[in-house]
Amino acid sequence: MPSILVYLLRRILQAVPVILLIMVGSFLLIQLAPGDAVDALVGDMGGADAAFVERMRQEYGLDQSVLVQLWRYLVKLAQFDFGWSYVYEQPVATVLMSRLWVTMLLMVGALSAAFVIGVALGTLAARRAYSLTDNVISTLGLIFYAMPSFLLALLMILVFSVKLGWLPVSGIKDIGAFHTGWRLWVDIARHLVMPVAALSLIYMAFYMRLMRTSVLEVMDLDFVRTAKAKGAGGRRLMFHHVMRNALMPVITLLGLQISTVLGGSVVIETIFALPGVGQLAYTSVIKRDLNTLMGIIFLASIIVLVVNIVTDMIYAWLDPRIELQ
């Protein structure tokens, strides 16, 4: 078997106990909070008699002990059955799938924007270190770095939607416009501009700072001097010799931050009323929709683990000295 497959297989096998631990831990943690789905339901109904509540609990299996509930859940999960969402009256898998793409667009958009722009600005700042350009970039970086994303989001809504009217305030598409084809995608893109910007700016600032330091460091290394002595200069020197080597710490950080980006998307989706997984998580907590919440946690863990494996592989691809094992 090629070593890359062996490596992947091993990483996936290692991920299984990690996921199991996360699921068991989350399940027990959620049980620690007072109240359950029936309480939330009854609360919404404006109250009900005790016999009805009791019958509901039996129907949902909530009258069993926590361990029995956990066991039942895990057995189903092993068959990739995420259960039924009492709030959405649909299987959890269906609910998740209908919302996953929004979150994915948001995250991939935010991370790529942060990475590409951050790396470019960081490199530019390093090449012109201590100049006016560098000072402007670094100061802007500091501002974005220090600004909470929810504040940034609200400011952007105020400026670009309310005052200027350039971009839609919330949602993922114009309801009632019934766009199709490329018009639909343009519409979605317009709705995503502000959420992506609000989520990505802080990471952009991170990558910019890190890339600047890293490029400055690499530019002082011996092999860059060798490249100069060969007659290389300008773009060739930056791309082939400096940037590729300087990217390594940025990629490490990117891999580590994937979980915080996921967390950040909960806030952003809630503010911009995007029908994504983050917003779903928020409502599931409020409505005590245990199955949906567990499904989200499962999905999130998978995303984080996959991204980590992918970053390790990118790392090995960029640096031949690192062997996957």
Binding site: K228, A229, L318, D319
Partner: peptide, 28 residues
Amino acid sequence: SEAEMRKLRGDRMAMIFQEPMTALNPQK
């Protein structure tokens, strides 16, 4: 000029450095 120097370096004059491990790009 710097552009003229780039043409000279590596072509008409070349350099060998002390520590070949660090003087070569590890990624190429």
